[in-house]
């Protein structure tokens, strides 16, 4: 069974008298351990899709099942519990709390899952070790470089051992070299069996994932799946699959 099952999901906003379909009848499966990217220009609905997948929002229509739990009509409290236990987020602007130091930031999700203080510290340090940031544990986010901040954010996303990690433009605020390193980190996590969803507007970044879903006007415009072609990794970053199914070249 798929880790995430989206069936006919629509998200409809009403602006004035006008109906805006941010998502229109989207169906999608994500298997455990997959490395997948959702790509689309701004306003395409990819963010809305990520919010629904990430239990930050609920669909207007359709069903979504995450790890066997139907969340389309869950209460805000149940959604919070899902975000806490099963989902990790990595954002473009890192979104670390500036008043807390790095290790306290990483501990944050565990505070809301009621982990005791000592265990919190141990797990947080282990997560920081995984992103090679132990020596910066007591620093404030403002004392770190962008890449280090993003690694701290990844540690925070991983600390509660979520079933799925969403990364929303994780390299958008980094120089290309640091961005490479972060993408490399995601790739490594993927090989360790993590399920990772990369949300980006940049086809080059999307190209690191074997499976790519392009969203346009709230619908899935294109679905590239190299795993079906027997390739579980693209040969190199920026590789474009067979003609006909390829994503449009980067603008």
């Amino acid at each position: 069974m798929a880790l995430v099952e989206l069936r006919g999901v629509s998200k409809i906003y009403h602006l004035g008298g006008e109906e805006i379909r941010a998502l229109d009848n989207v169906s999608l499966d994500i298997e455990p351990g997959e490395f997948i990217s959702i790509i689309g220009p701004s306003g395409s609905g990819k963010s809305t899709l990520m919010h629904i997948l990430g239990c930050l929002d609920t669909p207007t229509r359709g069903t979504i099942t995450l790890d066997g739990v139907m969340v389309q009509d869950a209460s805000p409290r149940q959604l919070a519990a899902m975000r806490n236990r099963k989902i990790g987020f990595v954002f473009q602007f890192f979104n670390l709390l500036p008043k807390l130091n790095v290790v306290q930031n990483v501990e944050l999700p565990m505070i809301y899952s009621g982990v005791s203080g000592r265990e919190r510290r141990e797990k947080a340090m282990a997560a920081l070790e995984a992103v090679d940031l132990v020596n910066r544990a007591k620093h404030r986010p403002s004392q770190l470089s962008g890449g280090q901040q993003q690694r701290a954010a990844i540690a925070r996303a991983l600390v509660n051992s979520p079933r799925i990690v969403f990364a929303d433009e994780p390299t958008g605020n980094l120089d290309s070299h640091t961005g490479e390193a972060i993408l490399g980190l995601f790739r490594r996590l993927s090989t360790e069996g993590r399920t990772i969803v990369l949300v980006t507007h940049d086809p080059e970044i999307a190209a690191v994932t074997p499976r790519r879903i392009e969203i346009r006007d709230g619908r899935i415009a294109q679905h590239v799946d190299l795993t079906l072609a027997g390739l579980d990794r693209p040969p190199r970053p920026g590789f474009v699959a067979e003609p006909g199914t390829a994503a449009p070249p980067a603008s």
């Binding site: 069974m1 099952e5 069936r7 006919g8 629509s10 229109d24 009848n25 169906s27 229509r61 359709g62 069903t63 099942t65 066997g68 739990v69 139907m70 969340v71 009509d73 869950a74 209460s75 409290r77 149940q78 919070a80 519990a81 899902m82 806490n84």
Partner: peptide
């Protein structure tokens, strides 16, 4: 808008946290 998709069989309601 397409027809409502069929309900996947082995799913539980959202568990009370």
């Amino acid at each position: 808008m397409s027809a409502a998709p069929s309900q996947p069989p082995a799913t539980s309601r959202a568990e009370p946290p």
